[in-house]
Amino acid sequence: MLETIWFILWGVLWAVYFMLDGFDLGLGSLLPFVAKNETEKRIVYNSMGPFWDGNEVWLITAGGVTFAAFPTAYAIMFNGLYSALLLLLFALILRGVCFEFRSKGDNQSWRDMWDKIMFIGSFLPCILLGVAFANIFEGLPLDKDGIFQGGLFTLLNPYGLAGGVLFLMLFLVHGALWLAIKTEGEISQRAGEMASKLWFVLLAVAVVFLVWTFFQTKLFDNYLKIPVLFMFPLIAVASLIMTKIFMLSKAWLKAWFASAGTILFVTFFGVAGLFPNLLPSSLNPAYNVTIFNSSASQLTLKIMLGVVLVMVPIVIAYQIWIYMFLKDKVNEKSLDYEEAY
């Protein structure tokens, strides 16, 4: 029972991470395309400046909770995905230092360099997170000892790459909408239009991925067993459609929330299909890493459940408070602020 509760929390933490860091990773990937000049670039940086760090902690928590609640799964996952994971972390490091580093330089070539690094440091994580999760959905080549029988290129199979593209598109739309909300005038409009166009690509990719998932993975087994689970993909699809509807009336904030819902429920769709596996093995179902054969002791699960159930709502509360507190739009005038990036 505790294992199942932890499985749900595990899925929720990853989903929230994707929902939050998704918009700044997406926006970082759009930087070279959405910002036309130095002022606009700074507007982009400052629109996510106060938030990216708090968003990234959800990754640390998702990782830390995997370590605490399912130590064996943590060990097998991170050992097996060694190169991909280190690449992800290096990219996130680059993304993170861009804010401080870029704004502290005097000349344009320095800033141009960090703009490129911002792009790479945001783009790679979008792809890699999607590749990693799609590979988990279809199963990793794990042997009976949980040893990963493959390399970096094993992960770059067509379905894995499709997952990468799906995440990229989800995050691009999400990021463009964020910029549309947080800015005004021309750049806001441009970001909104970009989101509207990218939405069609996202729709196409999502349909392909969903159908492919049916043939490539065993995720749908759970759905056929417990049809009520179909509400997850259905809500995901409904959110995706709502995103478009809100875009049509330029209700960017509502569209962003719909896009957030899409990301959350796409993640829930995958995670619900995995249950009770955390890491299915593509070699033999007997080698699957499940919540039961990889979990921590009952005592640890209980204590950590207490910690998470008390702390995470508090975290959510003060993060929402901070978002509300800094809800002002970023414009040319806000760049005069001394501490702005």
Partner: peptide, 12 residues
């Protein structure tokens, strides 16, 4: 991980 992992998770 049962012990060490939980301390890291609590820190976060």
């Amino acid at each position: 991980g049962d012990i060490f992992g939980s301390l890291l998770a609590i820190e976060a």
